[in-house]
Write a protein that binds this DNA or RNA. Structure first.
Length: 431
RNA sequence: GGAAAGCUGGUAGAGCGGUUGAAUACACCAGUCUUGAAAACUGGCAGCCCUUCGCGGGGCUCGAGGGUUCGAAUCCCUCGCUUUCCGCCA
């Protein structure tokens, strides 16, 4: 959420937060309509609030007088009739003020975060910047297959039967694929908790709507998540939701920061609006596993933490000997709540392309303001919003895809990278 | 699923429908004292919002939302959560 106070702040030396934010919206390719509506309503909000509060103050004063008179055993009836009239007037004014305020608040929930100054301005994903490329795409003496061909031939992934039990975009992993998926989760959780200092977490896989508002999925992207009918429960689209909302409505001590968690969870996405995209294989499923990295930190530290967190995700790719590149997303390609995002894209020989396997974002105070997560400065100042960051470390299903495609051999078998072998009972290949 | 009890500031814990945004204790911060620390003493200590250049003034918040009342932490309703008991279950 954007700070309404900042938006309304008068320009200083010719520039204002409002102007910067407006430019940010334009850079994202977003419309200014909602912002303009907010600004108009904000003025009305202040007017109606002041008026209602002034009348309420009069009422409170008179009510106190009634109490005083009654205690003294005096007659309060004249004050009483007066305040009785006021009561209805106050009620009306308060209702109007509340309406306007609610409208402003709900509009504030649907405008995106302001891009960080270091984010390249662009109009499509084509303008994302390659920050670095690590590892060499493997050369094959045969035509590289896609993971679903490899997996089905080995009998370790089954989409058809998942179609029977459930529907499209679901799958069974069997045998070595199931074992590899499980081993990957284990490896990622081990590395992040042991080497990178994250506290392991297994969150609830179901959350309420409040949490989804907190992290920014709601109200705007409601159709992207699965809800449980007749309840206020939703399947999590990412562990980011429960983990970020872990500190919902809390004020931490400055000395508590940073707080870092690595969380394993399955993720559920309706994939509304992605008809026809990646319809085959494991790339885009309604359910997938992910290990998520999440940090709550001091506002002055978030840029630094963002770099670290991204490097932690990269570490898994290098351990697994997977070629990848690190992209800095341009303004047009960033998610709703992000101020800055790095995507890690893994090389998929079967697709002859780099595909996203991790997305690491700095949300600054956007989510913290929504979820009201603050810290009390050590110097005794007012509580401030923390900064939140998260990134996939990594998307497990897509990691399996990458391992199958990069490790494939002409005879249909698949090599297992060294780092994973001990997790798979010493297996060096799948055949 | 059924029954009962509860939900108050960082924590514990008071609170007759009328100066109670809230006693008290602990924690915390600052100061005095001390070579230093502890102890003792003194003072401070909720957040959000409106208004003001500032001092300040005002509104809201005692799980959430409604209601009764001139006035609600206190009475009523709905919901949520916690705890205990019963049932069921991994």
């Amino acid at each position: 959420m954007i700070d309404l106070k900042l938006l309304e702040k008068k320009p200083e030396n010719g520039t204002s937060y409002y102007d910067e934010y407006k430019q940010g919206l334009l850079n994202r390719g977003a419309s200014l309509e909602t912002l303009e509506k907010i600004m108009t309503l904000a003025t009305r909000r202040r007017e109606t609030m002041s008026q209602a509060e002034a009348e309420k103050a009069r009422q409170n004063k008179l009510s106190a007088e009634v109490g005083q008179l009654k205690r003294e055993g005096k007659d309060a009836s004249s004050v009483l009739t007066h305040v009785e009239q006021l009561k209805h007037q106050v009620k009306e004014l308060e209702a109007i003020a509340a309406d306007v305020d609610n409208e402003v608040q709900s509009l504030l929930l649907v405008i995106p975060n302001k891009p960080h100054a270091s984010v390249p301005v662009g109009s499509s994903e084509k303008e994302n910047k390659v920050v670095s490329a690590v590892g060499e795409p493997p050369k094959f003496s045969f035509k590289a297959k896609e993971h679903f061909d490899i997996g089905e031939k080995l009998g370790i992934v089954d989409f058809d039967r998942a179609g029977k039990t459930t529907g499209a975009r679901f799958s069974f992993l069997k045998g070595a694929a199931a074992q590899m998926e499980r081993s990957l989760i284990q490896l990622m959780m081990d590395v992040h908790s042991r080497d990178h200092g994250y506290t392991e977490m297994i969150p609830p896989f179901i959350v309420n709507s409040k949490s989804l508002i907190g992290t920014g999925q709601f109200p705007k992207f409601k159709e992207d998540v699965f809800g449980l009918s007749g309840t206020d429960y939703y399947l999590i689209p990412t562990a980011e939701v429960p983990v970020t909302n872990y500190y919902y409505d809390e004020t931490l001590a400055e000395s508590d920061l940073p707080k870092s968690f690595c969380a394993y969870s399955p993720c559920f996405r309706s994939e509304a609006g992605s008809y026809g995209k990646d319809t085959k294989g494991l790339i885009r499923q309604h359910q997938f596993n992910k290990v998520e990295l999440m940090t709550f930190c001091h506002p002055t530290k978030s840029s630094e933490v963002h770099e670290q967190l991204t490097s932690h995700a990269e570490r898994i790719l290098t351990m697994l000997e997977l070629p990848y590149r690190k992209m800095l997303l341009c303004t047009a390609d960033m998610g709703f709540g992000a101020a800055k995002t790095y995507d890690l894209e893994v090389w998929l020989p079967g697709q002859n392309a780099y595909r996203e396997i991790s997305s690491c974002s700095n949300f600054e105070d956007f989510q913290a303001r929504r979820a009201n997560i603050r810290f009390k400065p050590a110097d005794g100042g007012k509580p401030q919003f923390v900064h939140t960051l998260n990134g996939s470390g990594l998307a497990v299903g897509r990691t399996l895809v990458a391992l199958l495609e990069n490790g494939q051999r002409e005879d249909g078998s698949v090599a297992i990278p060294k780092a994973l072998q001990s997790y798979m009972g010493g297996k060096t290949e799948i055949r």
